[in-house]
Design a binder for these strands. Structure first.
Lengths: 327, 327
DNA sequence: CTGTTAGCGCTTTCAT
DNA sequence: ATGAAAGCGCTAACAG
């Protein structure tokens, strides 16, 4: 396999490497005919300049990294489509990392990214204000970081998220009409969006003059523990109860338990859930859902990131795209 | 922000850059004390060598690319977990590309990969034997390519797949017990796995002495056309019919139509489908499924790829991991 | 408009 | 055991 580089091309045309380089970079410094001649040859043989040499020289990689907790979550799957679309249009590549909501994993990835393999980072981060944030700030000194979905208000890092607080009030209000005994389901208060949603839940309760009961807050680290808890709760239930779930996969577990215990949704139990699963209404036909603008959030955060990478001014650092409740 | 490199470290210790480099690469050419001293400092300040300089020098990137048609497909989501696990263990990064089953997209990605941004490629390719394969062979001259799931028998490229033919016979046999009027649902005969599954379907028909009817073969390019066709078919149906679906998302569309037309599964219609969706039985409790060993296929293909990247000998070029039917 | 040259940060050969 | 120096392929400052 014949390896090819600018030197070889230069030799072929009897010019210098810089002329080839300039042709490829569409420089104004060289004559049109030469430029055209070289470029048409380059196109013909499909020559691509060595990206490492270019990166080494330019300190640019034309690649960005995305950190998500879980690629299987429909919200992130859809966001990734939006992200990909924008990147592709701009000639950027995408590197995807899963954190599984492990702070240690996240830290490790952030550290790794400091080596310079990417030009920017999109992060739906697991960190919280109390926890470690140094890794984020440290990376952000080198390359731009943009949060999407999850974010940290305290940090001077742009973010694109949704109106978690408001839509959670609305969601809780809606379900309170069915039943006043509402459980809140989440992952951890440490996650920004969960905290906001919980706040919305509490606010709605207070609007409706319902006492807040800490026992109604259910936070789970994994599906298995969610399942177990739901099973116990529903086996021992006395009155109709309701669930406001902020985690798609836990909603699935809840529904699984309902099926097993032959509990009918929405007659015996009321559920409202955050989800972007395209077929959710096939399994849970009557469940109202909170649908996030995943695709647009992905697109917008990527556009912001690219703006920062190009060192252009941001019109606004933060964007909040509204979610909608579908009944 | 103070940028750091081997030169700076060398200066700090009053040694040369090559000594630092050798220390970092654990060379036997330098004394233990010096090596230890330098490395402990490097660890302390978490210095990471510039990956582009390294790649440029070594022609290695420690990154591999994965091409999948659709990241949202549960099979690929799970495979990616397996892939990630192996890569992570070996200090490799992952670049994910979606082809959306577009040959043009695939070609473009393959071309792009020729520039040398990755050390190897894992591909669930959309190409077919009749179509263009030059882009695959061309890339494979430069870096190793391994197929997973979809493959091209004709090419000298290792693959990891499942027993599509056999399990499709089994699946068709199973559904034939319910009903002899079986439709086959797929994407395109051009895709290797679809061709194999179709062959299994035909074989089972012939075993059962049922005439093959080309009208029973339903191939769709997207969800919308699948939906439309299913709707027409089921609205006009006379007898009980059955479907052997090889595409998860089309199964969802089929089920959607059933719900809309109030057709009961499995009483009014029999369905068996390939899927790895973790919650599939929540919506379709009684539907038998063909479950692929996604995670293991991802792991194994990655191990093969890494073996090739290290230029080691492969024990066996091709692996077929069996799928299982869950009733 | 074009060529020469230096240098991005690293590894490795060659010399000591 | 260590250092000097070359060079991976590219871009850009400088010179003409």
């Amino acid at each position: 396999m014949q390896k090819i580089n600018q030197k070889i091309i230069a030799k072929k045309f009897g010019v210098s490497v810089s002329t080839v380089s300039r042709a490829m970079n569409d420089s104004h410094q060289i004559s049109e005919p030469v430029k055209k001649k070289i470029n048409s040859y380059i196109k013909k043989i499909k020559f691509q300049p060595n990206p490492h040499a270019r990166s080494l020289r330019n300190m640019k990689t034309k690649t960005i990294a995305v950190l998500v907790p879980d690629i299987a979550n429909s919200f992130f799957t859809l966001s990734l489509r939006g992200i990909e679309e924008v990147l592709h249009k701009n000639g950027y590549n995408l590197m995807i990392f899963q954190t599984n909501d492990q702070l240690e994993t996240e830290k490790q990835i952030f550290n790794q990214l400091e080596s310079g393999i990417v030009d920017g980072v999109l992060s739906a981060c697991s960190s919280n204000k109390n926890g470690a944030i140094e890794h984020i700030m440290k990376l952000n000194e080198k390359i731009p970081v943009v949060f999407f979905d999850r974010f940290l208000k305290e940090l001077p890092i742009p973010y694109v998220t949704t109106n978690n607080f408001e839509v959670s009030i609305e969601a809780t209000d809606a379900i309170l009409k069915e039943c006043t005994d509402v459980f809140f389901v989440g992952i951890s208060e440490k996650i920004s969006v969960t905290a906001e949603r919980l706040m919305g839940y509490k606010t709605a309760l207070s609007h409706n003059k319902i006492a807040f009961d800490p026992k109604k807050i259910l936070m789970f680290e994994d599906e298995a523990s969610a399942y177990k808890k739901f099973k116990i709760l529903l086996q021992n239930r006395k009155n109709k109860s309701a669930f406001f779930s902020t985690v798609e996969r836990y909603t699935m577990e809840l529904y699984k338990v309902c099926t097993e215990l032959n509990i009918k949704v929405p007659d015996d139990i009321a559920i409202i859930s955050f989800t972007n699963h395209p077929y959710i209404h096939l399994f849970m036909p009557n469940m109202p859902i909170v649908s996030m603008p995943s695709f647009d959030m992905g697109k917008m955060s990527t556009e912001i990131l690219l703006t920062l990478i190009k060192k252009k001014k941001l019109l606004k650092p933060n964007y909040i795209l509204p979610s909608t409740i579908l009944y």
